[in-house]
Amino acid sequence: MNLAVLVSSSIDGLMLGFIYGLAAMGLTLIFGVMRVINLAHGAVITLGMFALYLFSVQLGLNPYLALVLTLFLGLAFGVVMYFISVHRVINAPELTTLLATFSVDLIIVGVGTAIFTTSPFSVNVDLGTYGSGEITVLGTKIVAVLAAILITVALYYFLYRTRIGKSIRAVANNRSAAELMGINTTAMLALSFGLGTMLAMISGGLIATLFTFTILTGDDYQTKSFVIVVIGGLGNPTGALVGGILLGLLEGIATLFMQPSWVPVIEYVAFVLILLLRPNGLFGARA
């Protein structure tokens, strides 16, 4: 095999991995703080794609300004979604929160299908290509990776260095104790849900600058996010980022050695095995 192809595939996979990781961080943040698996995660990623499409193609804004708008929209949407669909059932058994978030998924996908049908859309952003010979990288991908890194750093700064971020972590650790310490847990839960949704939407927006998408594309990223979150450990944002990069690399390289259709089989089998053998993730404490 050609070394250049291997390097190029690895770079490609690695870069995609950052975006996967960003999406998965949204899912894992919500789970970590409130033990809710957001089944609307994929729909929210789709929403990010279409938000970018509407802002940049329909309203004619610069795509990267549109991304910033998508970010704020995601935060607001998440907070609203929390109060509408999650808050009332936050202490109910898993099935209830799973179905509550799934119902939001149905609503988003249903309304989306009615408006946009299931045909493909794209946002054309051209930032040229970089590199030389057989190893070239799209400018949009570089920007997407940089954005993913920047957002991750900002998130960590927020969670570990700010007062509100510390409150969120306190709520994640022990909600009733946090409540006793005078933290407004409802506000923190809503904010965390908003942040998780924001991460999912912004990753959707970044994906939209790279690939064409339909109203159903988010589902693929949702299942990928599940796999990543389990690799990294449910509720562990760093794990999600590392898991995302691992998955991206696997996808980039595995296709060189096998039929692409076998890659998801490996992903899902690994997913189940990790859940069984290392439920805290590959990097977490042993079960």
Binding site: S85, V89, A100, L106, I107
Partner: peptide, 16 residues
């Protein structure tokens, strides 16, 4: 096309 959305809405009402 909207049936998914309406089913989702009903489900949400029931769950809540």
């Amino acid at each position: 096309q909207l049936h998914l959305a309406i089913a989702g809405f009903l489900l949400l009402l029931i769950v809540l």
